[in-house]
């Protein structure tokens, strides 16, 4: 007996999910951050963020098709984290690091928060 392990399966599927997002296919929620709107798939959001997991596992909220985030959340920071969810690549720009980290704290993305902490420490002379 043997088993074939397709080593790039996870990244191939994620790439396709990102293509679906970019073409707005089967996206089922709009995230409002200040005045900016981001379309996404609830399943991807809740797989990556503790906050979205809590929201979409709540039977009263799981059918919402729009979610407004705290107005203090930075839309640029959110955009970077949303791209990370769909690509596994986190663009850590020095000018946006605090916005990214604070948004990651708000979204309960603990591993990203740890990574931001390490990035800040390593950049600190």
């Amino acid at each position: 007996d043997s088993c074939i392990q397709f080593t790039r399966h996870a990244s191939d599927v994620l790439l396709n999910l990102n293509r679906l997002r970019s073409r707005d296919i089967l996206t089922d929620v709009t995230i409002l951050v200040n005045r900016q709107q981001f379309r996404a798939h609830k399943t991807v959001l809740m797989a990556c963020s503790g906050l979205f997991y809590t929201i979409f596992t709540d039977s009263h909220k799981c059918n919402l098709n729009a979610i407004s985030l705290d107005p203090k959340v930075d839309p640029e920071g959110f955009a970077i984290l949303l791209d990370f969810m769909y690509t596994s690549r986190l663009a850590l720009k020095e000018s946006l690091i605090m916005a990214i980290m604070n948004t990651a704290i708000y979204l309960q993305m603990d591993h990203v928060v740890d990574t931001c902490h390490r990035f800040i420490k390593s950049s600190d002379p």
Partner: peptide, 20 residues
């Protein structure tokens, strides 16, 4: 999969959805 030999396949695993 204990005791089962695993063969690694490094090629694409699913079709590629076009970007637009």
């Amino acid at each position: 999969y204990e005791g089962v030999s695993t063969i690694k396949e490094t090629g694409r695993s699913v079709h590629e959805i076009p970007s637009d």
